[in-house]
């Protein structure tokens, strides 16, 4: 199964503060962890995201669209980066996530979200609908 692993933002990642020597050491530990994931055939892709100060939100209500500029409050609800893993089950994903080094001072959080698979959609999407041609190159990462 494929999961997306969100690394939640913290005060530190949001403030984009210059990395301390401790943080640089932690980044190196993160590199080693990623290498472990690659060597286990688990790692598929990953990316880091800029702080919310450089983000926009688009509020949608009826026909109105309102652009809201970052930064946004509640760092813990924000995402600082993500990676995509291929694992046998959720237990394996959890076991790997627990090994992730702590690159941020203080408390931080990782969230594991499984991708929809074809069988998850079986109840409300027919095989015909699932197989129906969809226009455009969606560059999709899963079935839904």
């Amino acid at each position: 199964m494929r999961v997306m692993v969100f690394v939640k933002a913290t005060e530190a990642s949001e403030n984009g503060m210059a990395p301390t020597p401790e943080m640089l050491e932690a980044f190196a530990a993160m590199d080693r962890f990623t290498e472990e994931l690659v060597e286990a055939g688990v790692f598929v892709a990953a990316a880091g995201l800029k702080p919310s100060a450089q983000s926009k939100r688009i509020a949608i209500e009826g026909i109105s669209r309102t652009v809201i500029d970052g930064p946004f409050a509640e760092a813990r609800e924000l995402v600082a980066g993500f990676s995509i893993w291929e694992v046998k089950d959720m237990d394996e994903a959890i076991a790997w996530a627990k090994r992730c080094p702590n690159t941020m001072p203080g408390r931080s959080e990782i969230e594991i979200r499984p991708f929809f698979e074809a069988e998850d959609l079986a109840d409300f999407v027919t095989p015909e609908e699932l197989a129906a041609p969809r226009s455009g190159d969606r560059g999709k990462l899963g079935v839904a």
């Binding site: 598929v44 027919t126 190159d137």
Partner: peptide, 22 residues
């Protein structure tokens, strides 16, 4: 590569939007 009825679809006929680009 398979249609809803399970039949194999040759590569030239496949819906390329359904390929996994990752």
């Amino acid at each position: 590569r398979t249609g809803p009825d399970g039949a194999l679809i040759p590569i030239t006929e496949q819906d390329r939007a359904r390929w996994d680009h990752l």
